[in-house]
Simulated assay, not measured.
Amino acid sequence: MQRPEPEPQSFDRVLSSMCTEPHSDARAAAERFLAANPGDPATYETVAALEERAVERLATLAEHPIPSDAAGYVTSGGTEANVQAVRSARNRHDGGRDDRGVNVVAPESAHFSFTKAAELLDVELRTVPVDDDYRADTDAVAAAVDDATALVVGVAGTTEYGRVDPIPELAAIAAEAGARFHVDAAWGGFVLPFTDHDWSFADAAVDTLTIDPHKFGQAPVPAGGLLAREDAALDALAVNTPYLESRSQATLTGTRSGAGVAGAVAAMDALWPDGYREAADRAADHADWLAAELADRGYDVVDPELPLVAAAVPESEFAALRDAGWKISRTGTGELRVVCMPHVTRSTLRAFLDDLDRIRG
């Protein structure tokens, strides 16, 4: 018996994901470059040139002082970029590559990829508390750093509450400790340019930065991004590759997705800046509207800063919404978490609230 071809899952009821439907230009570009491998740029020259364009466009979003000179590459996602930022900082710390007695200081709101990085790279991860508004507590960060701190991490768009840490203050703490400073803007990076937040290379002494086109950038998966202020950050990652046409490689993976690179460039060409500004404004409006509607129903709601809504919804109601087909998730302390990505419309949110009202009776 022949099985039917599986169809991709619809985004219609997906409210928990930080990925979204790719732009049509990005989808077409990805298909054209399915077989290209930017892991060997000397062999695959066309996609290598596209990756240079991708890095320059990402650097423009992140306000690198000279976008055409920015270092970086298109990663598989934010996890790889964060692991590489830790690896680079460890390798550049005072003892160099042979020094493994180093630590990384990050707020407890940091993405779980930093836990993976610490385990993989044999560094100590020191997580510090957040303040009452879910942002990194600068006093706690300052108390945690020492001479062995290789990296301080700030988050610009936390995955649970959409908060932006005090990036300039954290950068100053890192500089005082002689550490590198990394900003994880994997999700927030395509929204923050249209806000008044301080988060970018222009706002602080940022050494490395994660920013993912396959999130709010509307590129196909996989298309993450790692940016660095200077070449030395990537030089610290390079290993010899004697059998390739390219004689060294700074990336974490060898073979990489040409589709992701081409799709990221196509999405940014199509949407920067006006398309992204419009998407960010719509998402912010949706988040504010949903937060107000939930508050009107008596739920405790965390005031949205970026387009992410968290609210204290009882477990029985949360489970019933899941049973109704809604793809929703919870924060670490149990709140309902809704991410207003570009595919999330006002009609979708109304349908979600209709189901919630029915469940509440």
Rank of each mutant, 00 (worst) to 15 (best):
residue 1 M to G: 13
residue 4 P to Q: 00
residue 6 P to Y: 05
residue 8 P to I: 01
residue 8 P to K: 04
residue 10 S to D: 03
residue 14 V to C: 09
residue 15 L to A: 07
residue 16 S to E: 01
residue 17 S to W: 09
residue 17 S to M: 00
residue 19 C to Q: 15
residue 20 T to H: 05
residue 33 F to I: 01
residue 38 P to A: 00
residue 39 G to M: 10
residue 41 P to T: 03
residue 41 P to R: 04
residue 45 E to V: 15
residue 53 R to G: 07
residue 54 A to R: 02
residue 54 A to S: 09
residue 61 L to M: 04
residue 63 E to L: 04
residue 65 P to N: 01
residue 65 P to V: 08
residue 69 D to G: 09
residue 71 A to T: 11
residue 73 Y to M: 05
residue 73 Y to N: 00
residue 81 A to G: 03
residue 81 A to L: 01
residue 81 A to K: 00
residue 86 V to N: 11
residue 94 D to R: 12
residue 98 D to F: 13
residue 104 V to R: 13
residue 106 A to H: 11
residue 110 A to T: 15
residue 110 A to M: 10
residue 112 F to N: 12
residue 120 L to A: 14
residue 120 L to C: 04
residue 121 L to T: 12
residue 122 D to S: 14
residue 131 D to F: 10
residue 132 D to M: 02
residue 136 A to P: 07
residue 137 D to E: 09
residue 140 A to M: 09
residue 145 V to I: 10
residue 150 A to I: 05
residue 150 A to N: 07
residue 152 V to G: 00
residue 153 V to F: 08
residue 154 G to W: 02
residue 158 T to A: 10
residue 163 R to P: 04
residue 167 I to P: 03
residue 169 E to L: 13
residue 172 A to R: 12
residue 173 I to T: 11
residue 173 I to S: 09
residue 179 A to D: 08
residue 179 A to G: 05
residue 181 F to L: 06
residue 182 H to C: 09
residue 186 A to P: 05
residue 188 G to L: 05
residue 190 F to I: 04
residue 190 F to D: 03
residue 193 P to Q: 00
residue 193 P to Y: 02
residue 199 W to Y: 12
residue 201 F to V: 12
residue 207 D to C: 03
residue 209 L to V: 06
residue 214 H to N: 15
residue 218 Q to T: 13
residue 224 G to W: 09
residue 231 D to A: 15
residue 232 A to F: 00
residue 232 A to N: 07
residue 233 A to P: 05
residue 235 D to K: 06
residue 240 N to M: 12
residue 244 L to W: 08
residue 247 R to C: 04
residue 251 T to Y: 03
residue 251 T to A: 13
residue 252 L to F: 15
residue 252 L to I: 05
residue 263 G to N: 01
residue 263 G to Q: 02
residue 265 V to C: 13
residue 270 A to G: 07
residue 270 A to N: 08
residue 280 A to H: 07
residue 282 R to T: 13
residue 283 A to N: 04
residue 284 A to D: 11
residue 296 D to F: 02
residue 297 R to P: 03
residue 297 R to V: 03
residue 298 G to N: 02
residue 304 P to G: 05
residue 305 E to G: 00
residue 305 E to Q: 13
residue 305 E to M: 02
residue 309 V to I: 02
residue 313 V to T: 14
residue 314 P to V: 08
residue 314 P to T: 13
residue 317 E to N: 14
residue 317 E to P: 12
residue 319 A to F: 11
residue 322 R to V: 09
residue 323 D to E: 15
residue 327 K to V: 14
residue 328 I to A: 01
residue 328 I to N: 02
residue 332 G to P: 10
residue 333 T to Q: 12
residue 333 T to K: 11
residue 334 G to A: 11
residue 336 L to E: 13
residue 337 R to T: 03
residue 339 V to S: 15
residue 339 V to H: 10
residue 341 M to W: 04
residue 342 P to R: 07
residue 344 V to D: 12
residue 351 A to S: 15
residue 355 D to Q: 12
residue 355 D to K: 06
residue 356 L to H: 08
residue 361 G to T: 01
